[in-house]
Amino acid sequence: MGSISVRAVSKRFETGDVDVTALEAVDLQVRDQEFVTLVGASGCGKSTLLNLVAGFETPSSGEVLVDGAPVRGPGPDRGVVFQQTALFPWLTVEENIAFGLSLRANRGKGEVKPIVERLLERTGLAAFRTRRPAELSGGMRQRAAIASVLAIDPSTLLMDEPFGALDALTRSIMQDFLLELWEARRKTVVLVTHDIDEAIYLADRTIIMTAHPGRICEAIEVDLPRPRRYEMRSSAAFIRLRDHVTQIVRAEALKGTAPLGAPASPALVPSMTQSAQN
């Protein structure tokens, strides 16, 4: 439960006269319980791809299947963790974690109290259960947000730069925290990030995306042993992977920032001529 299949998906956004092609002919298979990270420069469509799987967007062409069924809108089988933590400011930590389970759609997923209790324990938030989100640090807030999504026990976890707003130290602690949760109870994870170290450290497979239009450039199997440990980041294998990914991502990012006086990136041109033909 939790396999994702993206087939020949394109996504165009109409902004005034110009169509922006966010994604073009993207194919991606994610196995059940696989940890996949999407990495790329900004504008490569990695968040758009995640939103398509989440059901917040619909593809302009192609199809997105989850467990063989086409995605029709968001649903509790695909838990989304947002960069901007989605906690209700008027609810306490434990009420936030219980929120999903109290919805009609999730009746019968188990007794609310023990689940909340277990998640508070596992996220180290038990002592902060009656705090409101505004009273928590950034890292604690994101742990609470992850707990609130895990409470509804989705088969797939979709994470959109979940640690992007955190400082470097907290971020690396949160990465280990996420891996620990995942090792304890494996789910399919698709995590979007622009942090290359994070993309490699977490993943079974890292997908590198390129911009204008958004395409999958390369998929890299990360064959580092599990469970991952922080020290692995200085291993030769990790560094080799990182250099490889950095090279591609950097080259792409530089293409987007043409030197002064030079014509706009040629990569922009196809999507504009395409819209002219439409």
């Binding site: 989440a54 059901g55 917040f56 809108g73 968001p74 649903g75 509790p76 695909r78 838990g79 989304v80 947002f82 901007q84 933590t85 989605a86 209700f88 929120f99 999903g100 919805l103 009609r104 759609a105 999730n106 999504v149 509804i152």
Partner: peptide
Amino acid sequence: NITLYKAARMMGAN
């Protein structure tokens, strides 16, 4: 915040 709305829909809120 639109994120709250999206989060609730994702969790299955009617």
